[in-house]
Simulated scan of single mutants.
Amino acid sequence: MDTKTLIIDKATALFQQKGYIGVGLNEILKACNISKGSFYHHFPLGKEDLLITCLQDMNEIITQDIKGIFEHYSSTQEATQSMIEQLVADFKREGTITGYTFSSIVSEMALLSEPVRNACSSLYLNMQGIYANKLMSDGFSKESASSIALMMTASIEGGIMLCLTQKSSRPLEVISLTLPKLITKI
């Protein structure tokens, strides 16, 4: 693994565990066993530059994961239920949902940094796009699909935050049972 990839991987894990503000540069340097010079060689604009790169990397991973799930199932309802069940299983196994947990970064940084807000927005829009495309393939109009995709994103993201704050998979379990039933043509 090259140094830049190591920094991104370690920093992503730290940001997910402690948030952006809770992780200092020295902690990242120590986790990667690198010097400040090496860090700034790869991220000349500093820690925020690293955060944006981590968010872009998460965007790619999460987008590909969701696409894979949604391409595997014939309907939005089945895909949604499967994806949420996977999140529940991850939470039960690990006590957290690391692969999808970036909401704390959004709440910390979105108002402070336009580039971070844009990186977070891009991920949410990608998720909504996957959901909307699947809904349109199920026969929903573009307008309905976009509205439902927004509701799905908000429900799932909110469910993840509730699971983390309540230390329980119950919120996502309820969403897994309820959300697919709400996805119907009006």
Rank of each mutant, 00 (worst) to 15 (best):
M1K: 08
D2F: 11
T3E: 06
K4W: 06
K4E: 04
K4G: 01
K4M: 03
D9K: 12
A11H: 04
T12P: 01
A13H: 07
L14M: 11
Q17S: 11
K18Q: 10
G19R: 02
G19P: 01
G19F: 10
Y20F: 15
Y20L: 08
Y20S: 06
V23C: 12
N26D: 12
K30W: 00
A31K: 06
C32M: 02
S35Q: 05
S35D: 06
K36E: 08
G37L: 09
H42A: 01
F43S: 01
F43M: 01
L45H: 12
L45G: 15
G46Q: 01
K47I: 08
E48L: 03
E48H: 04
D49W: 13
D49N: 09
L50C: 08
I52A: 08
L55K: 01
Q56D: 11
Q56E: 12
E60S: 11
E60R: 13
Q64S: 12
D65K: 15
D65W: 04
I69K: 10
I69L: 03
Y73F: 11
S74L: 13
S75L: 02
S75M: 06
T76M: 11
Q77L: 02
E78D: 14
A79T: 00
T80P: 05
Q81G: 05
S82W: 01
M83H: 14
Q86F: 12
A89V: 07
E94F: 11
E94K: 12
I97W: 02
I97Y: 05
F102V: 08
S104E: 12
S104K: 15
I105V: 05
E108Q: 11
M109L: 12
M109Q: 11
S113Q: 06
E114D: 13
P115A: 03
V116E: 00
R117H: 14
R117N: 15
R117W: 09
S121W: 04
S122W: 05
Y124E: 11
Y124C: 05
L125E: 15
N126A: 09
N126M: 10
Q128H: 03
G129H: 09
A132P: 09
A132H: 07
K134I: 00
M136L: 01
S137V: 04
S137I: 05
D138I: 08
D138C: 08
G139Y: 01
G139P: 09
F140M: 02
F140N: 08
S141R: 02
K142N: 14
K142Q: 14
S144W: 11
A145I: 05
S146G: 14
S146Q: 15
S147V: 06
A149I: 00
M152C: 10
M152Q: 13
T153S: 13
A154F: 08
G158Q: 01
G158D: 07
G159T: 02
G159Q: 02
M161C: 09
L164T: 01
Q166K: 08
R170G: 13
R170H: 13
P171D: 01
S176K: 11
L177P: 00
K181A: 09
I183Q: 04
T184F: 10
K185H: 12
